[in-house]
């Protein structure tokens, strides 16, 4: 009895399979569409964001620039005007609003280089970092403090006070040396030594008195 029933169903097995296929395919068409989440998961983005590893200090950047490390790309996310007036050496200008324009993708979305983003502070650079990170771009860093911090620490380092620890003096010496590399000239560097004026003794006129020739005296 059961076998008969099964046989009855199985007689339609190809029709049932065909119906299942069409139903499934039709389901795809009817399913409500949703905007797909692109890039990394929100949790991952959050944990990346609060990680201090995403920042790079100006000292580290100076070290990289001085050693001419080829594995870093500097990207200035400020506008063209600021970029034209001053930027870090060998930086590329990709303004924040043009971050995802054609052509900038090859700098941002790649695996070979570490990308360092910077702006005047780290405010806009952070925004750029979040946008890129969400899309899953790798090796993105932000210059902590941006160009302002660069000025305050590398270009114009503050001389430590006398009562500060020796490490501060060492850091100051390093930063000063770095600033010299980037073209800052210090007064002690240009101080021309004052010419030592050798006092010449006043000329003494020594009159040599000629001895009068002794007159020939008569003798014999």
């Amino acid at each position: 009895m059961v076998k008969k029933k099964i046989a009855k169903v199985l007689a339609f097995r190809y029709k049932i399979l065909a119906a299942i296929l069409i139903l499934l395919a039709g389901g795809l068409v009817l399913l409500p569409k949703y905007q797909k989440h692109e890039g990394i998961k929100p949790e991952e983005l959050l944990s990346n964001t609060i990680s201090p590893e995403r920042y790079m200090t100006t000292d580290r950047l100076a070290h990289i620039l001085i050693n001419q490390d080829p594995s870093f790309i500097l990207i200035d996310v400020r506008d063209e005007k600021s970029f034209a007036s001053y930027s870090l050496p060998n930086a590329i200008n990709i303004p924040l609003e043009k971050l995802f324009d054609e052509g900038s993708d090859s700098y941002l979305n790649q695996n070979q280089f570490d990308v360092v983003l910077f702006s005047n502070d780290n405010f806009y650079a952070d925004q750029a970092w979040i946008l890129c990170n969400r899309l899953g771009y790798k090796h993105m860093r932000v210059l902590k403090g941006g160009v302002n911090e660069w000025y305050a620490t590398i270009i114009n380092p503050l001389k430590p006070a006398d009562n500060m620890p020796v490490t501060d003096f060492e850091l100051y010496a390093t930063r000063k040396a770095a600033s010299m590399f980037f073209g800052v000239v210090y007064p002690e560097q240009v101080k021309v030594e004052a010419p030592v004026i050798v006092k010449e003794a006043p000329k003494k006129v020594i009159t040599i008195e000629k001895k009068k020739k002794a007159e020939a005296e008569g003798g014999c």
């Binding site: 065909a18 296929l21 069409i22 499934l24 395919a25 039709g26 795809l28 068409v29 399913l31």
Partner: peptide, 13 residues
């Protein structure tokens, strides 16, 4: 693509 899959399955059947 979803419509394509649907049409494709009808063509197949």
């Amino acid at each position: 693509p979803y419509w394509f899959v649907f049409i494709f399955s009808i063509i197949a059947i």
